[in-house]
Design a protein around this nucleic acid. Sequence first.
RNA 1: GCCGGGGUGAUGAAAUUGGUAACCAUAGCGGACUUAAAAUCCGCCGCCCUUAUAAGGCUUGCCGGUUCGAGUCCGGUCCCCGGCACCA
Length: 889
Amino acid sequence: MAPGIIDFLKRILTTLTPSMQEKYLPKEIEQAAQQHWEHAAAFRATEDAAKPKYYCLSMFPYPSGKLHMGHVRNYTIGDVLSRYHKMRGFNVLQPMGWDAFGLPAENAAMANGVPPAKWTYDNIAYMKKQLKSLGFAIDWERELATCQPQYYQWNQWLFLRMLEKGIAYLKTGTVNWDPVDQTVLANEQVIDGRGWRTGALVEKREIPMYYLKITDYADELLSALDTLPGWPERVKTMQANWIGKSHGVRFAFPYRLGGKQEKLWVYTTRADTIMGVTFCAVAAEHPLATHAARNNLKLAEFIEECKRGSVMEADMATMEKKGMPTGIFVDHPLTAKKIEVWVGNYVLMGYGEGAVMAVPAHDERDFEFAKKYGLAIKPVISVAGQTYSLDAWQEWYADKAHGVCVNSGKYNDLDYPSAIDAIVADLKAKDLGDQQITYRLRDWGISRQRYWGCPIPIIHCPSCGVVPVPDDQLPVVLPDDCVPDGSGNPLRKRADFLDCACPKCGQAAKRETDTMDTFVDSSWYYARYCSAGNTQAMVDARSDYWMPVDQYIGGIEHAILHLLYSRFWSKVMRDLGLVKYQEPFANLLTQGMVLNEIFFRKPQGGTAGRIVYYNPTEVDLQFDDKGNRCGATLRSDGQPVESGGIGTMSKSKNNGVDPQALVDQYGADTARFFMMFAAPPEQTLEWSDSGVEGSFRFLKRLWAFGHAMHDSVRGAGKVPEKLDGALAALADVRREIHLNLKQANYDIGKHQFNTVASAAMKILNALEKTPRPGDGAAVIAEGLSILLRLLSPITPHICHVLWRELGYGDDLLQAPWPEPLAAALAQDEIELVLQINGKLRGNLRVAADATREAIEAAALASTTVQKHCEGKPTKKVIVVPGRLVNIVV
RNA sequence: GCCGGGGUGAUGAAAUUGGUAACCAUAGCGGACUUAAAAUCCGCCGCCCUUAUAAGGCUUGCCGGUUCGAGUCCGGUCCCCGGCACCA
């Protein structure tokens, strides 16, 4: 046909039906879809008792500057679930806000001389624009930022309630102290034991801090994990281990000091080994250590050494164990034998009693310590078939399940529980100890010696002492124009903040300058979204409607701290009568991290200089003939760079990919599709440029297919009741589509969105192969309507526009979720796998409703079986319905 | 160090949870279209042996076990990742 005639026909067609853009133009499509949702206020959530509610919450972002890939992944997962449930008929709430207080704002302030408030609000404005461009179904009317007084005043208000109830209290705590900058450092700011800015050796320092008694809730926080079937097992296990409930014995070693009778208290879970105690160890800050150091210069020096060094548990656990004897002896509580007290750098004052009993024979750490300092090792547990040797530590030395006491006088031959009972009875009789349940969990210290946080509402009065700020003076507003300079909290220099009148006596007084841990802000924001805008109360009746959160989504790195603090905080709110729910998050999805390859060059010539990291977007990869990677070069100079393997996207390794560049180049739908397709949500996700290209190609193909089918879909009728005879090929395609839909629906239930994306691709593959004329159009129209609905939670923009272009309806969000049809799935014959002795040997076609006996007979009669087990007698035939037949000979 | 998770083709991964290992993609190779390139479309693609195949053998980090049958369960071991209480 001549081109002129084709053009002529095209022009006629376009006048007959609404025209459709031929090329896939994500920018236009996404703008149109987003405008539609905006005008329809499609995501505004209102309380509606008639509908089942679905509160879908993603962990709010820290406004660090721009979105990173982890955010895109997190919020796409939340958006897929939100849109899916909306189409399923749920009343969906998906809010968004900003975890806006924190250290990075102060660092940026120091670097740029800009107040943290301005930096934070600028970042929020930019990141909000980014979130909007990704098309998330968010109710922006509920937006909050934790640095707003109307939010954090309720931190202060609840803190005061906790103070009244004794849940909040004052105690000394240990912090990292930079002696040059004269300031407290965060753990992150301590690098190899030195301050990050000054390079000075960091010291430990004891300062007064406010603590929250999370330990009062330890037992409930532990037992209530069983009421959370929607939480991943691994998170519940981690929380249970973190709380660390243990049944043990608290007992004392009596001693005389300065003419007075005293007791050195310790706690142990291995009281059955008490007869093996050969020394005790106390923390450097323990009163006994301080006493002994008075006339012992070397010990005093050692105690000073212990006070340097790290406060971090990982460092404590891996450092070299050191100790020094105090020369002080205590009495063994059962034998009255003299036991020497040592100072150990591995004993912490803040944990338990600040003192431990040492049983080198049955505790690995004590064993090493005793070997190092030549202390006695006395085995008191024996396990049948094992011989104790002092040469090296053996796993069984610490075995309490199979051992019995030996070398233990009256306790000999007792097993663990009986030994504990007998020993506790004797300790009790002497008033020297009893059984006790303890927790590894420690109270939550919330005081931070930093500016950019929620002020702790306390006033220090020279006459009245510590005075809580009265409710009617809340909020204590943080001045928002300070610029920190690294030399400590700038609030200390702000007279307008600092100076106030004592609420009790009216005298001149000073405000507390410590602010709250940012984990406080994030411990209840989910409840505040439900009561947005209420200036009179922290939460109101709307929170009773929405809470608990039906689906919480966030990084696995928050598995313990944030989630535990949030659970604790909501239990406190419950006990204050503010909320009715027991647990804030009914279901939890912990997404994996986003990773990318790390490229670097070591400094040339010698060790001086830093490693330079190059962004993967600046690196070209080389491949050999077989397609294997054989090198990488920097694009700018063509010289090779080294690969540092795959790691989480981070600023320090310069391996982040800017989501904005991705959205600008390919559109939001491609970014969203790739994020869902590349890995299941709970696993780590590796970045791949070519994977993004592939996602974009798929969406282009989808658009092109929609364009090609435009007229026939608009003109298509219903799929005929029977697709047999000449239409058998159509029946196959239709079955494939419905099978994939069935699988996808199952996978959505498992939150396995990568295979949902894969199912969508398979459906498009099937549709493209469908014979087009006649009844094919009906099958295609049906299949495409399934595909668009199934895919719409992942790539909502392209699906929304195609849905309208192809005349399915005005609003895809209002369409019902697709379900597979039994008629489309039905088939007469099925194929079974044929195994002989568990080895795959062939296939077997049988009727779909064949009985076990019929299948067995057909299998034995098949040529495959005849060939492979000629003559050998059949021992057993295993038939797995719908799957396989295994013949054992 | 302790707690938790992971390891499957060249790569991301799948396997309805003990029943055909590698779906769907990516990369690569070959072809069509094109003056050419891009884009698009079609075909091949775990490894070994081979008489080149519609035969056979091997393969889910490594070693061992349970089972008719193990990527999946059990024991051991190596490596990687997350958390460890002031990064968020």
